[in-house]
Amino acid sequence: MTGGSVESLLRDHLADPACAWSLGAYGAVAAFSRDPAEPVTFRDDGRIGLATARGAILLAATPDLVPFAYETGFTGGWSQAVALCLPEAACAMGGRAVLTELGPDAAAVRAQDRGAILFDLGLGLRAVQACVRVADPGLIDDLRAAAGRPIFAPGNPVGPILFAAGPHRVFLARFGRIEVYTPIPPEGRASAPGPHTHILPKLLRLGRTHAATAPIPPGLVPCAALHPAHPAKDAAGRRAGFDAARHAAFGRLLDAWGDPALTALRRMVLAGGEPDPALANGRFARSAIRAARAQVVAMRN
């Protein structure tokens, strides 16, 4: 994991509309993406960010921010990401377990949002605060009345109130934030493409910072991720013709920011070799090999 500048990594991918972003933990995630033709305002005041009419992202290349690039193989394909991690000792946020008013969001990406009130939803996340931002006086009163209680407690009306109102969702980590301005979709309906949030109580109860399939190095906690354009999928996740340039670009990210042992297994498979079973002994090694084999198949189609 000895890549180039973390700041360059963030800047280059924020400038690419084909790159998507996420910030959160297992069971609670805010996602940001934009269309190539979508109007965008860039911000650079020591932090790096941009805003559209549907959402915003703001990041800082702090000294303790560690990128980690990886692929995950599964039946019929693979995923890829660069996790943005912090050391375990430096990642903690509020850790609140009840709805809590935080005051005006002075750090909002857009100036017009800085007088609105932030409420921490109290999801008890270790490295992320999942919040809503509210400007409507009536909704502020409703949330203040519900403060001090878990939002998923039986009989707590705040969940349906938030679903109906659809306020801004603001997810915060020590090095940045994602803001989502789009409406909350009705229960059972998928979010529209673009900025959105997911909060899944069943997964939250597991208390994980990330999926068990992600080979995050010990001692690091992933708080966010960048998702470069996939070589074999379009922006909606549908299968598309293989893009060799995208594939090569993520290979360079793996070389710079990935696990050298997993990256070596990938190169061996892509070159037509068969990894030594002793080297492939482990969940993450087997996943890296599956990902590389799926890429070989995609190159041929």
Rank of each mutant, 00 (worst) to 15 (best):
S8D: 09
H13K: 08
L14I: 00
D16K: 01
A18S: 05
C19H: 10
S22D: 11
A25S: 08
A25Q: 08
A28N: 01
A31S: 14
A31I: 13
F32C: 08
D35R: 09
A37P: 11
T41Q: 11
F42Q: 12
D45F: 09
G46F: 01
G49R: 13
R54T: 07
L59R: 00
P63R: 02
E71Q: 09
T75S: 11
G76I: 04
S79D: 14
L86S: 04
P87N: 12
P87A: 01
A89N: 07
A89L: 15
M93F: 07
M93K: 07
G94Q: 10
R96D: 04
L99S: 12
A106C: 12
R110W: 04
R114Y: 02
R114A: 00
R114W: 03
L121S: 05
L123S: 03
L123C: 03
G124M: 08
R126W: 05
A127E: 09
V132H: 08
R133E: 06
V134D: 02
I140N: 07
D141M: 13
L143A: 04
A146E: 15
P154V: 01
P157N: 04
A165D: 02
P167K: 12
P167V: 09
H168E: 13
V170H: 01
F171Q: 06
F171P: 08
F171Y: 09
F171C: 09
A173L: 03
I178S: 13
V180E: 06
P183G: 07
P185S: 11
E187G: 09
P193I: 06
P193K: 04
L203Q: 07
L206C: 10
G207N: 12
T209W: 15
A211G: 10
I216H: 00
I216M: 00
P217T: 07
P218H: 15
G219E: 00
G219S: 06
P222H: 02
A229Q: 00
H230C: 05
H230G: 00
K233S: 05
A236H: 14
A240T: 13
A240C: 05
F242I: 14
D243Y: 12
A245T: 11
R246N: 04
A248R: 14
G251N: 14
R252F: 08
L254S: 11
W257R: 02
L262A: 05
V269W: 10
A271R: 10
A271E: 14
G272E: 07
G272K: 05
G273H: 06
D276V: 10
A278H: 10
N281V: 09
G282Y: 01
A285P: 05
A288G: 05
A294R: 06
V296G: 11
M299D: 04
